[in-house]
Nucleic acid binder design. Structure first.
Length: 433
DNA sequence: GCCGTTTTCGGCCCGACTGTTTTCAGTCG
């Protein structure tokens, strides 16, 4: 059962998508999308907030605030209903199939009369998309892959999505156990010495509004401090993810701001970055510049479809980088949306264990990556882990429960997880010496 | 539609990849 904030966020997101489908101004589309993310990630119940205070949510101005207020009064937003009526049935759901965007969805609905993903699947297999401008064999493959991953992940996604907003790690772990094959290794036995949420001393992968987070540096740090963490890393995106518009100058200014906040918090603040692993395994900055960071997370954000040998080499090069500490969301899957990349897992584990590079257990319920079913084997190969929220909002910080659930499913103890360690041991690990 | 050390306008999420492209539109992160 989603929270009230999620319900409003879903309507704002739908409005944004409908605006996109109807050719609305792209900046308006983005405004609603941003507002949806901000509302969904807002830690207080919007239903309890005074109406005049709604615009305090970053990204919510007078127009969105009025729509939220309308939802609170009536349970609906008329503008959303009106726009729904203007969009051909099926176009919205088709536009979310990977490889099909708004333009192609409208084209498919208009020319073929298709209104569901099932019909799209049949049409592709029947060759009915052939001959439509812009569609070739690659498009067909991609669409079929997208439909397949949605189907294969549907049960897990639905089960995770139907959990209560305050579900515990044990409740989440039960969902994992019901939907995933049980890992082979179980010598620690259920419950004995397994990691608990309270064992985590910090979060090592988080964002701010300097890149695509919704909350300021100060806001994120204050919220992390309230969670009782001993240390906390800020790891905004790096320049090669161009849309994030990160620069050397910006990240250095942020570093100064973070250092200046050190005295205002009981936590040790770590300045980091989420680097982009390029197709050849290199990352955004040279070793000298990277040396200025306390910690780095390196993630794949492009060229997901490399063959296994190339992808394995790519990860190995990244892990061997003396300035890369954590491989972020290693298989880059998004549950129901994007399949895992093809990589030789044994080679990946070996490279991480050999180089002292942690594999991330990304706690976002949309990712769950490293996938829980792989964790035990990675541990057996000598890999250490970082359980990170990859938070883009205040509410995201509470997602650690999902990472802890995955770690428990994989049989991990606090000794396996670097952000359960005392600061000194963590810093030693980060030095890769 | 939101926002402001540029404050009521003007900028904001850019560029790589891909297909079947004939000079570019659509999608994605």
């Amino acid at each position: 059962m989603p929270s009230p904030n999620e319900a409003v966020a879903a309507l704002l997101r739908e409005y944004s998508e409908l605006l996109g489908l109807t050719g609305g101004d792209q900046f308006r589309v983005r405004s609603y999308e941003k507002a949806a993310r901000a509302v969904g990630g807002y830690p207080e119940d919007l239903g309890a907030l005074p109406e005049s205070a709604l615009t305090r949510v970053p990204g919510v101005g007078s127009s969105v605030a009025a729509k939220i207020a309308e939802y609170r009064r009536t349970g609906t937003i008329k503008a959303v209903d009106d726009l729904r009526a203007k969009v051909p049935p099926g176009a919205l759901v088709l536009s979310k199939v990977p490889g099909v965007g708004p333009k192609r969805a409208l084209q498919i609905v208009g020319e073929l009369g298709i209104t569901s993903v099932g019909e799209l699947d049949e049409a592709v297999r029947g060759g009915r998309l052939r001959g439509m401008p812009g569609f070739g064999p690659k498009s067909e493959e991609r669409i079929l892959r997208g439909i397949a991953i949605a189907a294969s992940d549907a049960a897990l996604r639905e089960a995770l999505g139907s959990l209560a907003p305050d579900a515990t790690a044990d409740e989440i772990c039960a969902v994992l156990a019901a939907h995933l094959a049980t890992p082979g290794a179980g010598e620690s036995g259920p419950g004995h010495g397994l990691i608990r949420a309270e064992d985590l001393r910090g979060d090592l992968h988080t964002h701010t509004d300097l890149t695509d987070g919704t909350v300021s540096l100060e806001g994120m740090i204050a919220a992390a401090g309230a969670r009782g963490y001993e240390y906390y890393a800020v790891t905004d995106h790096a320049p090669n993810l161009v849309m994030q518009r990160m620069t050397d100058e910006k990240v250095l200014v942020q570093r100064d701001q973070l250092r200046a906040l050190a005295d205002s918090t009981g936590m040790v603040l770590l300045h980091g970055s989420e680097l982009n692993i390029a197709p050849d395994g290199s990352v955004d900055w040279d070793e000298d510049f990277l040396g200025g960071f306390d910690i780095t997370v390196a993630s794949v954000h492009s060229s997901f479809e490399q063959d296994q040998a190339t992808m394995t080499k790519r990860f190995t090069v990244a892990a061997q980088n003396p300035r890369v500490n954590i491989i972020g969301h290693p298989l880059t899957r998004r549950i129901g949306r994007r399949p895992p990349v093809q990589v030789d897992l044994d080679a990946l584990y070996a490279a991480c264990a050999r180089t002292g590079t942690a594999l991330e257990i990304n706690a976002s319920p949309h990712r769950m990556d490293l996938p829980p079913e792989h964790i035990a084997a990675a541990r057996d190969a000598g890999v250490k882990f970082a359980i990170d929220t990859d938070a883009h909002s205040l509410a995201d910080l509470t997602n650690v429960r999902y990472g802890v659930a995955a770690a428990r499913f994989g049989g991990l103890t606090p000794d396996d997880v670097i952000n359960c360690w005392p600061l000194e041991r963590l810093l030693e690990f980060l030095s890769k010496s």
